Simulated assay, not measured.
Amino acid sequence: MTVAQGAEPVSPSQITQFESLRAVDLRLATIAYRLTTANAALCRDLSPTPGWAIQSLGQYAPASRAAARQVFGFERPIAVEAVVSGGPAEKAGIRSNDSLVSVDGAALPSGDPVAGPANSITRDVALALIAGKPIDRPLAVELVRGGTARKVAIDAPAGCRSNFEILLTPGMDASSDGVVVQIGVRFFERYGDEAVAAIVAHELSHTILRHRQRLDAAKVDRGLFAELGRNGRLFRATEGAADQLSVSLLYNAGYDPLNAVRFWREHGGDVDGGLFRSRTHPSANARAAAIADEVARIPAGAPRPYVPAVLATRDQPLN
């Protein structure tokens, strides 16, 4: 492999690793696009949803940046990692490895990342800028590809405002902090997209139902006493509510919500000891049964988007 003078050598294993990461991020981006756009009517906080995954060069450790440039382009610090098939970004002519220069005339960071540990600050700035744009008009995006700049307009539909990212951890981890939904890479390694969509819908439901803010307002203990007494009861209540709402999110996005029932019946044991701790989350069997009950509440042939009763609880204090 030819290496430019002064550049760090790039190994075939690094190339393979980064292409694998792109494939997983595209799977998550595709699921997220379906769920957020199909359920926009259920969400108060909306943002333009182009149907892409973007990343920054600074997310990678300095020793990996030469490989990241080779695989992902990075003619600018922000680049399009992957594009959802059939989505608005693809229809506008955007392709993987296009670098982003500006959005609606607002310039994105242009300098190389500073030396030091990897961080997502530059990417998060870009995501926040895009999310803050109006949802009633196309996004005007300036790109550069192969040294050639161009401008496109993306007819990005409104979607539930949330960021999504892969956790490169060994456990079966998933979470929502009200802003970012994180899904462990192990879910993508073990299960197909229909099953993973059930996990993503559950975490997105926490965001829509404002569980982080409501739990904080209830002053729950997230430490040693999280599983005990009132703390455990409130955590379990929010998990049950998120399971309920996830059924409608899946239905509205064209997924079969019974896949969530099958997941908990067949694979609940995979996660019970990690992500879903016994006294802050219901058991896998209890979750499967509750989700099945919620599926049965959706009338046959109900129009989409279907709005479930649990949505009305999102402003109620937890006590």
Rank of each mutant, 00 (worst) to 15 (best):
L129T: 15
L28P: 02
R210G: 03
P117T: 14
P170D: 00
A107Y: 04
L249N: 10
A218M: 01
A198R: 03
S176L: 02
R44Q: 10
G58K: 06
A300N: 12
I298Q: 06
K219M: 04
D221H: 05
F276G: 02
V307L: 00
A241T: 01
V220S: 07
P308F: 01
A300I: 03
G51I: 02
R262D: 15
N231K: 08
V180D: 01
G159W: 10
E239P: 03
F187Q: 01
R262A: 15
D112R: 13
P77S: 09
A63H: 11
A149I: 05
E239Q: 13
Y60F: 15
V141H: 11
E75K: 06
R214I: 10
A217K: 03
D155I: 03
L318F: 13
R230P: 03
V141E: 06
S99V: 12
A197E: 04
I121F: 14
L249H: 10
A29C: 04
G111L: 15
Q17G: 05
V310W: 01
Q17S: 14
S278I: 08
Q17T: 09
V180K: 05
L129A: 10
V185K: 01
G51V: 07
S85D: 14
D193H: 05
F276I: 06
A41M: 04
A40F: 10
E203A: 08
I183W: 01
P317N: 03
W52H: 07
T36C: 12
A296M: 02
D272N: 09
R222E: 10
N119M: 08
T207I: 04
L57E: 14
L21E: 05
Y251M: 04
E266C: 04
P88I: 08
A226C: 06
D216P: 01
G240Q: 11
V220G: 03
A195R: 06
R161A: 14
L168R: 00
W264G: 11
T169H: 00
A115S: 14
A292F: 13
G184Q: 00
G223T: 13
D112M: 11
G171I: 00
R314K: 15
N285G: 11
A106E: 07
V80Y: 07
I15L: 11
S283V: 07
T169Q: 01
N163P: 00
L26K: 12
S278H: 12
A118L: 13
Q213N: 04
R137F: 03
E294Y: 02
T36G: 10
D45Q: 06
A197R: 07
S120T: 15
D173V: 00
A40Y: 12
P62W: 08
G58H: 06
F263Q: 15
A68L: 12
L249G: 12
A53V: 11
M172N: 15
L311E: 00
V295F: 03
A89I: 08
E165D: 14
D112N: 08
A156C: 09
D124C: 02
A7Y: 12
S13D: 10
L100N: 05
P62Y: 12
A92G: 09
Q244F: 01
V103K: 05
A153M: 12
S246G: 09
R161H: 08
